[in-house]
Design a protein around this nucleic acid. Structure first.
Lengths: 230, 230
DNA sequence: GATAGTTTCATACATATGTTTGAAATGCAA
DNA sequence: TTGCATTTCAAACATATGTATGAAACTATC
């Protein structure tokens, strides 16, 4: 009967500390102090530090992915098996943005932890993220159904840009606030989702020319690359 | 006469190793071995490991920033003091994308190093990146001149999304190739720049309603924003 | 060629940090 | 209780890694 008490305490303490101070600045000794457990408990319950981090990350990732797929499924049912491209993009970026920028700041170490995981890039998390491709393929498939005949390449670029806007906004949240001097309201999650979705849909549905060849590329040689060494 | 030879050798070796194996996996001892210099040379010439990394990063950053401003200036001169929004965005994302995705020219180590710096997030680099806000303000100012009357908030979001697409594409280059099974050509830098610029401009110039209030956010929770006209 | 400043070198230092260990404590079943 | 399995604990372990040191080698100016 694994009382599980120590285990949970470690997970909670670790997530909190990592969320607050980042992976680079938190040692196992910090974690066990915060959790009031013995140092050896981490290796006993998780095997290694990396496996602890991995467990934290997969737990939260699974949550997000499940929400994504739920929204996608709901959208497809609503549309009789074929979701609109807009709803698909919303299902793709909505859960992540809500999860990381959500207003429940106070208690939600989970959100802050996921932001950290997005900013810092530590080996165990990188390994897990690499498996995410399979998950994204489901969205690519849905997009293909929503936009039959559209070139696959365009579809992947749209997917890429949608994730780009969502993740970058999360990653660079503080910088955007500073740059815009508070004009960009990072707490208005619904508004942000609308923005990202709108631009993504535009990128995907714009000019059919784009599906044949890349958008109007000027023959001009770009800029001046005065490349002088320092 | 500071022969500078050792110093340069360290810089070159460090950039190569960091580019290949990342910051987390490369020690000073690896670097001095690669450079065929003594271990103490790093601290003698740079003061500390972090200052070495910082110097590597600022060198490349300065290059990129100078290219950006050069392009911006050229665009403004071309337009008689007022550059088009498209040219501004091109000046913003072009140099970075060319620098990081460019074809492997003379030792692509610089490019690969900058990709690493974008993926991993190590303290000395983070510190430098934080100063980048001032640089971005110059682009915000140019955009304001190009789109007078437009709400500042929209402008910052557009800037944010443009950087998002550029940086995310760089960061997740490998994943995008894998996801698209090679359909997305990450070597076609000019094409990528065109894509990013096109979407950015769309995001910025779309529906004037967006300049007054956030992009047509329906009262309905998951309402659809049909915004197809570019 | 002597002297002063600069650079290189081998080596030592310090110590942070994940991991292991073996014993003690605890819990559970018979 | 007894005995076995699980868990906790203090301490040790290992060692990777950035940094400091002091002497030697080198360079240049006089």
């Amino acid at each position: 009967m694994p009382s599980d008490q120590t285990r949970s305490a470690i997970l909670a303490a670790a997530e909190r500390l990592y969320a607050d101070r980042g992976f680079g600045d938190v040692t196992l000794r910090d974690i066990v102090a915060e959790a009031n457990v013995n140092l050896a408990a981490v290796n006993y319950h998780f095997g290694s530090k990396d496996e602890l981090i991995a467990e934290l990350f997969v737990t939260r990732s699974i949550q997000t992915n499940r929400e994504r797929l739920n929204e996608l499924k709901a959208a497809e049912e609503k549309g009789g098996g074929r979701a609109s491209i807009e709803d698909i993009m919303r299902a793709l970026v909505g859960p992540t943005l809500r999860g990381c920028l959500g207003p429940d700041r106070e208690g939600s170490t989970a959100a802050r932890f996921m932001i950290r995981a997005s900013i810092e890039s530590v080996p165990p998390i990188r390994r897990i993220k690499n498996r995410e491709v399979d998950h994204l393929r489901k969205f690519a498939a849905a997009m293909r159904r929503a936009m039959p005949g559209r070139d696959d390449t365009e579809l992947y670029w749209g997917l890429n840009f949608a994730l780009a806007m969502a993740h970058h906004t999360i990653r660079e949240k503080e910088r955007l606030i500073r740059l815009s001097e508070g004009k960009c309201d990072l707490d208005d999650v619904a508004g942000i989702i609308d923005r990202v979705v709108a631009v993504s849909v535009m990128a995907l549905t714009t000019g059919d020319a784009a599906s044949k060849s890349p958008p109007a590329r000027p023959a001009v040689v770009h800029g001046r690359l005065t490349r002088q060494d320092l």
